[in-house]
Write a protein that binds this DNA or RNA. Structure first.
Lengths: 130, 130
DNA sequence: TATCAGTTTAGAACGATTCTAATGTATTGA
DNA sequence: TCAATACATTAGAATCGTTCTAAACTGATA
């Protein structure tokens, strides 16, 4: 709690009740992939009465401060990842679940980027069958 | 025209006026990335009065028949790719533009997939800076 | 502790997409 | 060829994730 408030302040975020609850959940040491919906469900179970608007605001605020990564997994909703290190994912469409790939992978055979463009990062998504 | 009608029939799609126009544009030999919106704009310029509903229906029908690939690029809209071969992409967020990577790339260092899961396909997205 | 900038909220608005149900059209088979 | 019918198209309504609005609230500051 104390440290979460610190943590929020360090990131220029006012440690409001709602942000503290959400940050405590998201940054508990276990990496997570959440959407506004899954986070809302989790918070409902915790009986934290936090409005959807605040959930969206907070995810966005945390993202702006670099505390969350935005993932482009599907076109139906936005996924946020508490693991902000560069890493890759397994994705099971069937389970609608993402799994971190934390080992180093190398991509070889990459062509030159188009004129005047620079490669920012390489993202590998490994689709699972079942 | 004749061949497009054939092509549609071969894929169990009734060659209606609208489908012929859209297929002629999409499958003209040049690979394309389209969204319902970009396709609609293109059709407007061609003065083809095709309703948005039909554009969505047609993209979906073509996708169902395997004539288009769905891309998961961002969460704001759905991208369809006329290149249905397995390939990768450069993506410029700034330009909202995708560029095919048609050379063979290899990903090494991939960990084993989770228990009981099989790798379906590996997708590499190379983000460009500018 | 009063002030005030920043935050939360319910509900409205928005934008991409899907649905509905009425109208239109390609196919079929007599 | 033409009628019947199964499939397509369409405008507009509905849906759903997300963002916006503007009023009420609260943490920080002096």
């Amino acid at each position: 709690m104390k440290d979460i408030k610190h943590f929020l302040r360090q990131n220029s975020l006012r440690p409001t009740k709602q942000r503290v609850i959400i940050a405590n959940y998201l940054f508990d040491g276990v990496n997570k992939h959440v959407t506004a919906e899954t986070l809302s469900n989790k918070l409902l179970k915790m009986k934290a009465g936090i409005s959807l608007a605040t959930i969206y605001n907070t995810l966005h605020d945390f993202y702006e401060k670099g505390l969350l990564k935005k993932l482009m997994i599907n076109s139906e909703r936005v996924y946020f990842d508490t693991n902000t290190e560069h890493h890759h994912h397994f994705y099971s469409k069937k389970d609608q679940k993402l799994i971190d790939i934390n080992v180093d992978m190398k991509v070889s055979g990459l062509p030159k980027p188009p004129k005047n463009k620079k490669i920012n990062k390489i993202e590998v998504l490994v689709h699972l069958d079942n």
